[in-house]
Design a protein around this nucleic acid. Structure first.
Lengths: 138, 138
DNA sequence: GTAATGTCTCTAGTGACTAGAGGTTCAATA
DNA sequence: TATTGAACCTCTAGTCACTAGAGACATTAC
């Protein structure tokens, strides 16, 4: 059994975040010492690692809730889990797509001014003021 | 002179968002009718278009504030403006990089399970539980 | 026994909005 | 001119996933 600080060190999840996950129902309520401090075991550690990893991959708290629910019922179909992963993947791909358009536009805009002039003639400011100056929709 | 609803239509920025921008100091306080309703002119329209475009490109409210400050002083050096744009570009590139790693990992994970089994054997869930199953850091 | 560190709960703040309540004003029609 | 209905006003609170800080209590090392 170890403290919340120890759990934090092992999982690299900050202490207040652990408490937050408990409040959100992602982590079961921890056992307490006689002095009301939380104590964790291997199971708590594994669950938090799971959450941490899923968060790192960009899953929402809600999605992680569903995944944990499935984990707790090993006999259920895992269709929902793959659905969540696939939708998360689609999300990531959409974000990449959009960011690439932005990158293109920002690169163009940045190159338009070397920063040595005055604001009145700045291509960066002009570009932002006038969408027409953009190469394409973004 | 036109109403906030009209401004909203022309810029595609929602009405409460316009009020929010005013509160944040991005938009000057609008003139009011005798009945206390906001009225805008061409200048307000142009400024909001500027904000909208910058937000679309992912600039933060704070960054936009600085850009507007520069816009209002046409004689100042525009170095700060190009700095902001360049740093925004770096930001976008960093995000793309990270998302590509995620995409790779999520693709691999998604392919590992067709969703027809039970949760106990699900590769998606196993991957999330065990970071070691990942190809690389993400 | 004491001191330092860790932990507790609670409230409030972050960014960029969005939603809703309850009331007022405007513009178009009868 | 009177009425209606849409648009507008302010204010508060909610979103997401935390993060920060205050003030009090517990644990651990010496």
């Amino acid at each position: 059994m170890f403290s919340i600080g120890e759990l934090s060190k092992r999982t690299k999840v900050k202490v207040p975040t652990i408490r937050y996950y408990e409040e959100m129902g992602l982590l079961a309520e921890a056992e307490r010492t006689s002095g009301n401090q939380r104590r964790y075991d291997k199971e708590g550690l594994e669950r938090l690692s799971f959450i941490r990893h899923a968060r790192d991959l960009g899953f929402s708290i809600e999605a992680i809730s569903s995944l944990i629910e499935l984990q707790d019922h090993p006999d259920r179909s895992c269709e929902a889990a793959t659905d969540i992963a696939v939708s998360q993947l689609a999300d990531v791909r959409a974000k990449i797509k959009r960011l690439k358009l932005l990158e293109r536009e920002l690169t163009r805009i940045s190159k338009g001014c070397d920063g040595h002039g005055v604001s009145e003639d700045c291509y960066v400011l002009a570009s932002l003021a006038d969408h027409e100056l953009c190469e394409r929709e973004h």
